[in-house]
């Protein structure tokens, strides 16, 4: 569409040249985008002596040794524990978000009740509320419950649909589901609960999948709340475990640091490969269309 518009003005050899220049620029940008990732991968395969001396992407003598070294880098505790903790928290968050946000979104998108518009406006306002503002009182509160150093402060709020972004995403999605289906169900004698169960729930699968993927990735990458709520090494997640590398910039720890960094990004990368189209759409659908 826009492509045609562009070619209206410039045809012929200058247009072809421009096309080549464009490709060259795009590839250069791609290099800038991918270089840090490739460098991290390459460095994770370098030996301790090489990692400080050879700063290029490719290792001269690749070795896997950094991976087992990094895995057990921390005395008495392995990265396996961190991965397990991260996985448990991420999966619990996925389930909690999917269920609670779907329920709330149904109310906003499909039911008519007094005060709905006000609540909806408040929900939108909480989207813009920076999490750092709430962290102190929430911490005091959860500490009072004795929840600090357990996954509860990371999961329980999600059960209460506090991730407004996903509520909003699902509201937008449900608005695309034809209302005639609701009416048909109602005529068949369905209560609002029936409409939710038999109409909305089955049709909301794509929104649920998007929610699940983003929930997983964001929780997996999250640092701030995990840093605050998980002070014991045994309850560390992967990002908090990686933090232990911050203070050691000696040659011996660089390789293992890169290895564990690469490993920590692997689940996100796999999600990216499997769902890239959905991810890119997820960004769009909720915002621009709908």
């Amino acid at each position: 569409m826009a492509v045609q518009a562009a070619t209206v003005t410039g045809r012929g050899s200058s247009g072809a040249l421009r096309g080549v220049v464009r490709i060259v620029i795009l590839v250069a940008i791609l290099g800038f985008v991918l270089y840090p990732l490739l460098w991290m991968l390459g460095s994770s395969l370098k030996s301790p002596t090489e990692v400080a001396s050879n700063l290029s992407v490719l290792p001269t003598e690749p070795t896997w040794a950094n991976y087992p070294d990094g895995w057990s880098y921390i005395d008495g505790i392995s990265f396996g524990r961190f991965f397990l903790n991260s996985t448990v928290i991420a999966l619990a968050t996925v389930v909690a978000n999917a269920v609670s946000c779907l329920v709330a979104a149904f109310a906003f998108a499909r039911l008519h009740f007094r005060g709905r518009k006000v609540w909806f406006a408040i929900m939108i306002a909480t989207l813009l509320l920076p999490s750092h503002v709430l962290i102190i009182p929430q911490y005091v509160m959860f500490n009072y419950f004795g929840w600090v150093d357990t996954p509860l402060p990371l999961i329980v709020p999600r059960l209460l649909a506090t991730e407004a972004f996903f509520v909003f995403l699902m509201v937008q999605f449900m608005r695309g589901i034809p209302r005639e289906l609701d009416h048909a169900a109602k005529i068949d004698g369905c209560s609002p609960y029936g409409v939710f169960r038999y109409v909305i729930l089955p049709l909301s699968r794509p929104a649920l999948v998007t929610t699940a993927i983003f929930s997983f990735i964001w929780t997996w990458n999250d640092f701030f709340t995990q840093l605050v709520y998980l002070p014991s090494p045994t309850s560390y997640t992967v990002p908090i475990g990686l933090r232990l590398f911050i203070d050691s910039t000696g040659q011996t720890s660089l390789g293992p640091m890169f290895a564990m960094s690469a490993l920590s990004l692997l689940p996100v990368f796999l999600f990216f490969l499997a769902f890239q189209r959905l991810l890119v759409q997820g960004i769009n659908t909720s915002g621009l269309k709908g």
């Binding site: 609670s100 709330a104 109310a107 709905r116 509320l129 609002p192």
Partner: peptide
Amino acid sequence: QEGRAGYVFLSPWLLGLMAITAFPM
């Protein structure tokens, strides 16, 4: 009935708003 159902479906979110957002603020 729909009005009631609305608040039933909204209740987790409302509880979250009160307990996790408004009260801490």
